[in-house]
Design a protein around this nucleic acid. Structure first.
Length: 718
RNA sequence: GCCCCCGUGGUGGAAUGGUAGACACUGGAGACUUAAAAUCUCUUGGCCGUAUGGCCGUGCCGGUUCGAGUCCGGCCGGGGGCACCA
């Protein structure tokens, strides 16, 4: 009987693979290709079990495809721009660049012992000037093709730190460092015209046969195609230049239930009114307090201000409706104005109740229903309803048919027209931060906004910056922004905004096909390796990252950087579950928050989980996301040292189906180790067993079945 | 608030609308051992029963069906996303 010594076995084979360049991807036309990719990591400094699980899945597929005659591309890189590096620089000095590259070195050292089949020769970080310089070239090409434009957009503004805050830096409407009330403020920013592709990004979802249905549904809902009526109310006595209020509604069938018109505090009419009316100005200012997130806006207490203005109902000009400024109406969806129908929309109902506005039902559940509603009546799809109020006395219908009939009726009577709208907004890419790819444009007094010349790329980040005060160091750098205008040659100023980190991750998969090319991609390499055959990552990227990448592939196709066949870049998508771990906690006498204990400090005695040191009973919260602050993180280094990579890999793939969460448990890890040990033992003893009298046959069959499966996942026991 | 997903033994989980709990972990019993570990065998949803066996069971309530873990409606609980976290 031989002993299983993973440290020796794994290091031996890993060295052999490295020497033989086993995992180097080479383009040869005699073999089919296979491109497997895991979502690349942010270099936080330590890998965690989620990474192990993610890369193991890709590794299993890569090894399988290699063994079936494919040229396999299985690369790895680093999503290296972002706020944590700046936060680290602010907290402890140093430079984001040094922090980031050190973290990359540390994480790579942790990943190597996992024995992954990665072609490390293609490695890059998005903060490498060679990478973001090519990204700047893409920006310039997109700009030329009209895929990028500038407009005003709101940001979270911290009035004490005088800086823009990310949503996660706004806590309960206050700046995370200053504690000041955050305000919404408008800045001129750059946008990708992703909305040009709304229809195509939506309809092409049908072609993504190997994507999870739920991701496709989430993307479809995000794009949010709707059919509705756009029309305008005429104002009874509006200010100059405001004789109509344009609204969009998906429920024109309830138009006879209108009881008010609501406009966003950022609507042009509200802007006009607040100029002369301090009370309105104060109300709008109040509405602009707090963060910019949809969740915050929609859960905030509904507030309205009666402007005193009225509009005429389109079907009865003697019927006047009050105009309210309301804090829950978003300027950037629809027209920034709505008609309120309290009887059939709960939000409008709450608003009408609060401001004592009429609640007019256009239909009721039954003919003899009490018309005094206590909540909005929104019928189920299958439910038939009784109409009490329709257009020109005629009843309408519920559902899509009712909406279409209402649109047709309104169009016939000269009230607006049917339109198709999308919820998808253009993608704002400007960030008022240092640690990102500089937006390669120059502001010239004579020429205006001019793209940097490609021969001057990359526009590189300076190293001599400090983070002792909040804000973007590029703004206050003494010389960096000074440059010559690429058009006229006169002195000009660089843009100091950098790009959203989602830009970096929207085309890295294409760059992996030719990481050293002098252009963003190499046509022959991209044509051979694209698309990604299997993409693997977390469900948290189901919408933004994947949608942006789908847009980028189209934009790169339009600008000649990707072939037509790569307009949908990911043939198959797999969304893996998280690796979780129990939290062990005891109540604290002094703080509201409990005391969290490390797994190694607790044990089970007589079925009760207790602290080893004191015997005190511990509350166990199962299956919680691993978090440093909860002391429930399992460090892959320790697991690898104790059991070896194959055990860790086997456990995170076998204990729970790959798409579901897996709870890391010490007993489960122990069991996985026993299993791998058993496979190893039997495999190495097969010769001896077959020499014997044949009594080992049954054992051999079982062992062979286990080994076949295990080899697919771990692969190093050969 | 809106969109999406999930809920089955002590645990991870399995079940094209057709015998619920495959497989595995833990636990229990046993074999081997001076002993322990390791390994191997049996056993392990709950309740009643010495037993043959019976009853109850897939978060809750209702519906469709000859038949529901599975389909439909409504709840409850947990999770993910909501456009400047990555």
């Amino acid at each position: 009987m031989s002993t299983y010594t993973p440290a020796q076995i794994e290091s031996k084979w890993q060295a052999a693979w490295a020497d033989a360049n086993t995992f180097k991807a080479t383009r040869t036309e005699d073999k089919p290709k296979y491109y497997v990719l895991e979502m690349f990591p942010y270099p936080s400094g330590r890998i965690h079990m989620g990474h192990v699980r993610n890369y193991t899945m890709g590794d299993v597929i890569a090894r399988y495809k290699m063994s079936t005659g494919h040229n396999v591309l299985h690369p790895m890189g680093w999503d290296a721009f972002g706020m944590p590096a700046e936060n680290a620089a602010m907290a402890s000095g140093g430079h984001p660049k040094d922090w980031t590259y050190q973290n990359i070195a540390d994480m790579k050292a942790q990943m190597k012992p996992l024995g992954l089949s990665i072609d490390w020769s293609r490695e890059f970080a998005t903060c490498d000037p060679e990478y973001y310089g090519q990204q700047q070239a893409l920006f310039i090409d997109f700009l030329e093709k009209g895929l990028i434009y500038r407009k005003k957009a709101v940001v979270n503004w911290d009035p004490i730190d005088m800086t823009v805050l990310a949503n996660e830096q706004v806590i309960d409407g206050k700046g995370w460092r200053s504690g000041a009330d955050v305000e919404r403020r408008e800045l001129v920013q750059w946008f990708f015209k992703i909305s040009d592709y709304s229809e195509e990004l939506l309809s092409a979802i049908d072609t993504l046969d190997d994507w999870p249905a739920k991701v496709k549904l989430m993307q479809a809902n995000w794009i949010g195609k709707s059919r509705g009526l756009q029309f305008s109310f005429s104002m009874v006595d509006g200010p100059d230049g405001h004789d109509r209020v344009e609204v969009y509604t998906t429920r024109p069938d309830t138009l006879m239930g209108a009881s008010f018109v609501g406009i966003s505090p950022d609507h042009p009419l509200a802007r006009e009114l607040e100029r002369d009316n301090p009370e309105i100005a104060a109300f709008c200012a109040e509405c602009r307090k707090g963060g910019t997130t949809a969740a915050e806006l929609e859960t905030a207490e509904k507030k309205g201000y009666d402007t005193g203005l009225t509009v005429r109902h389109p079907f009865d000009t003697s019927w006047e409706l009050p105009v309210y400024i309301a804090n829950f109406i978003l300027m950037d969806y629809g027209t920034g104005a709505i008609f309120g129908c309290p009887a059939h929309d709960q939000r409008d109902f709450d608003f009408a109740t609060k401001y004592d506005l009429p609640i007019i039902a256009t239909y009721l559940p039954e003919a003899d229903s009490d018309p005094q509603l206590t909540e909005a009546y929104v019928p189920l799809k299958s439910e038939s309803v009784h109409y009490v109020k329709g257009f020109a006395g005629e009843p309408v219908q519920t559902g899509d048919d009712g909406v279409n009939a209402a649109i047709a009726f309104c169009e016939e009577n000269g009230v607006g027209h049917g339109v198709t709208k999308f919820r998808l907004r253009d993608w704002g890419l400007s960030r008022q931060r240092f640690w990102g790819a500089p937006i390669p444009v120059v502001h010239c007094d004579d020429c205006g906004v001019v793209p940097e010349a490609k021969e001057n790329l990359p526009v590189e980040l300076p190293y001599d910056v400090t983070f002792d005060v909040p804000g973007n160091p590029l703004d206050r750098h003494p010389t960096w922004r000074n440059c010559a205008c690429p058009a006229c040659g006169k002195p000009a100023q660089r843009e100091t905004d950098t790009m959203d980190t989602f830009v970096d991750s929207s085309w890295y998969f294409a760059r992996f096909t030719s990481p050293d090319a002098a252009t963003p991609t190499d046509a022959a390499e991209a044509a051979y390796w694209m698309n990604v055959d299997q993409y693997i990552g977390g469900i948290e990227h189901a919408i933004l990252h994947l949608l942006y990448s789908r847009f980028f592939a189209r934009a790169m196709n339009m600008t000649g950087h990707l072939p037509d066949s790569a307009r949908e870049p990911f043939n198959a998508l797999f969304t893996q579950g998280m690796v979780t771990h129990a939290i062990y906690q005891t109540p604290s006498n002094t703080a509201a928050r409990p005391i969290y204990h490390y797994p190694e400090d607790v044990e089970v005695r007589d079925g009760v989980t207790v602290l080893k040191a004191t015997g005190q009973e511990v509350e166990v919260i199962p299956s919680a996301k691993m978090s440093k602050s909860k002391n429930n993180v399992v460090d892959p280094d320790n697991i690898l040292a104790q059991y070896g990579a194959d055990t860790a890999r086997w456990f995170v793939l076998s204990d729970s189906p790959p798409e579901r969460d897996v709870e890391w448990t010490a007993s489960g890890a122990e069991a996985a180790f026993k299993h791998i040990s058993r496979v190893h033992r039997v495999a190495t003893d097969i010769a001896a067993m077959t020499d014997a009298t044949g009594q080992g046959d049954e054992e051999l069959i079982r062992a062979t079945q286990r080994a076949t499966l295990t080899f697919q996942v771990s692969g190093t026991l050969r």
